[in-house]
């Protein structure tokens, strides 16, 4: 593999997904989730996937498109409210959901990505999210130990990439992408634009290419946002059907 040209096609990427993998996915309510990689994940046919990401997307947006197919076994996230089907699967016992406070979840993934063995915090102390967590006492203060998170595979959406994998992002579609990019054993990036090395200003690079293993060109957003749908209440319905 040429580390200075990581661009591959989707057939190569499809084979990187496997049953029961831990998959880190980026995005916040689908914003910043790589649309073509989600389709590729679905087409790969993998099942029993253990998901780690901010939220469950919407049933027709982002990771939500995969979750509604019932091929995820577990989900570590901060929020699933925008995907009622994820909530149903959780209540039916078909999807094991672990909630983590959003910023702590980011730090757990960051810890995993930067070679640290976890974090200590008192966020969530005394709540049901603290149950079964190890308590560490330092200077007579109690903290929760929050374990680090890594993925077998991480999928990321960038605005621009050079062929080494240096990345820039688009406004709030950056969200947790830089964190997710660091924490996968294999990191796959879908980029809206791929340029030659030297074409990105080093000052604008947000994620250095050292974290990136594969690059694919984006097919663009292929879902309708919640605010583009006239009847926002019918969240369970696929708006394009």
């Amino acid at each position: 593999m040429d580390i200075f040209n990581k661009v591959v096609d989707y057939e190569v990427v499809k084979k990187l997904f496997f049953d029961e993998m831990k998959l880190l996915y980026s995005g916040f309510g689908g914003v910043g989730t790589p649309p073509s990689l989600i389709d590729c994940l679905i087409e790969s046919g993998v099942k029993e996937v253990n998901l780690i990401g901010n939220d469950a997307g919407f049933p027709w947006i982002g990771i939500g498109k995969f979750i509604v197919l019932k091929r995820a076994k577990s989900l570590i996230a901060s929020h699933i409210g925008s995907n009622p089907i994820a909530g149903e699967l959780m209540h039916e016992g078909k999807l094991k959901v672990e909630f983590s406070p959003q910023g702590i979840l980011n730090e757990r993934i960051r810890a995993g990505g930067v070679g640290l063995n976890g974090i200590l915090t008192d966020v969530g102390k005394g709540t049901i999210l603290a149950e079964n967590k190890t308590v560490v006492k330092i200077d007579n203060k109690e903290f929760l130990f929050e374990s680090p998170l890594t993925g077998d595979v991480g999928i990321v959406h960038a605005a621009k990439a050079d062929t080494f994998g240096n990345l820039t992002f688009n406004k709030t579609a950056r969200n947790n992408n830089p964190i997710i990019a660091m924490a996968g054993k294999t990191t796959i990036v879908e980029a809206d634009e791929i340029v030659a090395m030297g074409q990105l200003d080093p000052e604008e690079v947000v994620v250095p290419g050292i974290y990136v293993n594969y690059l694919v060109p984006s097919g663009g957003i292929n879902w309708k946002w919640i605010w583009e749908i006239p009847d926002k209440r019918s969240q369970k319905e696929h708006p394009l059907k």
Partner: peptide, 13 residues
């Protein structure tokens, strides 16, 4: 209903 904790714990903290 399970919306999820989101960032609320940290905002409150």
């Amino acid at each position: 209903r399970v919306p999820g904790v989101g960032g609320a714990m940290e905002l409150a903290y």
